[in-house]
């Protein structure tokens, strides 16, 4: 009897402390975020003190209307979604195919390929040769500059390789006896079994695409190809510009972007991710459930 009771109470205390610590941790994250959220719907007067503000001062949406007053924002939103969805999708499929082959120790030249991959993680030619390359490929000022150069990364490939390696070889062998091709094994056995890993790569890459504005800055001059983050970047740097004009002349007064507007942009770019994220989160949990059902 005693033996049985002990683990249960130990488990109880474990869950108790676990919950407490996680609640404290969540508070540590949430309170500053709440402060940002509240500040973004406050009039600017409340923001200067930097003090503990847990409720909006003079509730107002003026910061948000200011951001959305730019009529090209909805369009930019569209570009962002398009490049995130297409980019993350193609990237994940592309990497998965390569990672599948690289995860097989029987692959001839494997060592050479992977060494090549590792080198790309640490050595690059820098911005100028890359620009010239993108230019000679005719990708400047096209939507595809968001997708094609981002198709592959060896880092993501390594993650997938490690997940693929965990799949029992027996599954593959029995499929082979049934005459399945590599492509079929990859698509029918490996992909369904590594959903959490694929969801992770989609998340990593999708967030990368969503947040990226450097590609736009470097390779895009056409306004209609601007994603949301580029617009946001423009709004934010305007506040730095006004300080630059101090060295200029007296009649050059740009309206500075206020702190409130900056914070509104943070919220605006984060919300879509918070909406999309649970869709992916399902797959993490689905993975756990599936495993549970199968065994």
């Amino acid at each position: 009897m005693e033996l049985k009771k002990k683990p249960r109470s130990e488990g109880y205390w474990f869950y108790f402390f676990n919950t407490i610590i996680l609640i404290l941790f969540s508070l540590l994250i949430v309170v500053p975020i709440w402060n940002i959220l509240v500040s973004s719907v406050s009039s600017n007067a409340g923001l200067a003190s930097g003090g503990l503000m847990l409720w909006p001062k003079d509730f107002t949406f003026q910061n948000y209307t200011k951001v959305f007053s730019d009529s090209s924002i909805p369009k930019a939103f569209g570009i962002s979604i398009l490049k995130t969805v297409i980019g993350a999708g193609t990237h994940t499929v592309f990497c998965a195919i390569v990672a599948y082959a690289l995860s097989k120790s029987r692959l001839i030249g494997r060592k050479f390929y992977t060494t090549m991959g590792v080198i790309t993680m640490y050595f690059g030619g820098g911005m100028i040769p890359t620009y010239l390359l993108i230019k000679s490929l005719g990708l400047l000022d096209t939507f595809w500059v968001y997708i094609i150069p981002a198709l592959f990364s060896y880092y993501d490939c390594v993650i997938l390789m490690n997940f693929f390696r965990e799949i029992p070889a027996s599954l593959e062998e029995s499929a082979k006896i049934d005459g399945a091709s590599e492509w079929k094994i990859f698509a029918d056995i490996y992909l369904p079994l590594t959903k959490p890993a694929l969801a992770t790569i989609i998340l990593f890459n999708g967030v990368g695409q969503w947040n990226d504005f450097m590609t736009t800055k470097l390779y895009i001059t056409k306004q209609y190809l601007y994603p949301l983050q580029m617009k946001i970047y423009e709004i934010i740097v305007q506040s730095n510009l006004s300080s630059m004009t101090q060295s200029g002349s007296t009649d050059v007064i740009f309206k500075a972007t206020t702190r409130g507007v900056q914070l509104a942009t943070i919220v605006i770019t984060t919300v879509p991710i918070l909406i999309i994220y649970p869709l992916l989160q399902k797959h993490f949990i689905a993975g756990m459930m599936e495993g549970a059902v199968k065994e």
Binding site: I108, G124, S181
Partner: peptide, 26 residues
């Protein structure tokens, strides 16, 4: 293992074009 090799090939071509060609910038 031609199928397997065919699967790595796109990755290798990608790395040659986008990572190794610009590397002369070093």
């Amino acid at each position: 293992q031609r199928q397997l090799q065919l699967m790595v090939l796109p990755g290798i071509i990608f790395m040659i074009i986008f990572n190794y060609i610009p590397i002369y910038g070093i």
